[in-house]
Amino acid sequence: MRKRMTLLAVVAVAALALAGCSGSDSGTTGSTDAGSTPTAPFEVATDVALTGSPTFDAMTERGSVKVGVKEDQPGLGYLDAATGERTGFDIDIARWIAASLGFSEDKIEFVAIPSANREAAIVNGDIDYYVGTYSITDKRKEQIDFAGPYFVTGQGLLVAADNSDITSEKDLAGKTVCSATGSTPIQNIRDNFPDTKTVEFDTYSQCVDALKDGSVDAVTTDAAILIGYAAQEPDVLKVVGEPFTVENYGVGLPKGDDALRTFINEMFTNGGETWTAIYDATLGQSGTSVEQPAVDQY
């Protein structure tokens, strides 16, 4: 039987988030026309009208969408090197947005961008929007805007399966913790855990490799991401403790593009059934569900 979950339960369920689908329709402007993948819970909109969005104008002139993503996060944003298939909750949220704007799968260019380079990629126009475990913060909002939030999680810890020294964030003194450069988790460790050593890499998968070879004692980022890694190698890795922050995931957008931000927020608000279908096919594979968060119409 399905049930709604708290933040802690979301983290536990994310271990099963290793499947993908594609998604979108609700909240579009104009008629719709079937044109997505057979499993997608959305259709590609046609005759989309979005006045006042320079980002949308650039997409339309180019005839395609450039989306910044992660590709090393199982269940959220993952690229299978063997098949070339992209799967995960964030990937399907990105597809949903593109479809609502009138762009089919073959018109989407996914661009893998490290955490430290996300704001620069948006500001420089290298991508049209970014969907990839991107926590909304006031500091980031000085350079860019966010639509959403579309998901809520919290910072956690990944350690070796045989590690008995670290059971929560209270055990980090004197330990070495790894996270991605430019991420909110690494900044939180620096600010609030002064006795903890930090190591940074461009990607979380590099941190996981360092954990497995013993170079670091723990990896920290959003718990939903860490559970995906632990699920791949349960005999090698485990997640310990409970989330010790609250992270609101948003869609990164060029600053000042209020028309696009409002469009995507309305898509989220009006597209509850589509959001749920995307979640159920990815992070919700256990048969449980979560409440879709309300957007912040700032």
Results as ranks from 00 to 15, higher is better:
Q73S: 11
L260I: 10
T203Y: 14
D25W: 10
Q143D: 14
A294T: 09
I113H: 06
V10R: 13
K197L: 06
K255L: 13
I113C: 03
R190G: 04
P234E: 04
D235T: 12
L157M: 08
E109D: 14
G271N: 05
E119T: 15
A34I: 04
I264V: 09
T55A: 06
A223L: 05
K107Q: 15
K212G: 00
F56T: 03
I93P: 01
K66I: 06
A49E: 12
S104W: 02
A14Y: 04
I108M: 09
G148A: 07
A230C: 01
I113S: 12
N248T: 06
E61L: 08
N192P: 00
Y298A: 07
L253W: 00
K175N: 06
T29V: 11
F103D: 10
T60Q: 12
V13I: 07
I278H: 06
G256I: 03
I186W: 13
T245H: 03
A210L: 01
D165W: 02
L172T: 10
T288Q: 15
D90W: 02
K238N: 11
P149C: 12
K255Y: 04
L76H: 09
L157D: 01
G287D: 09
I91T: 13
T133W: 01
D195A: 14
I225W: 10
F56W: 07
T181Y: 00
Y150V: 02
T262K: 14
T221E: 08
T262M: 07
P293K: 12
G252Y: 02
P149H: 05
K66G: 02
I91K: 04
N248E: 15
G156W: 12
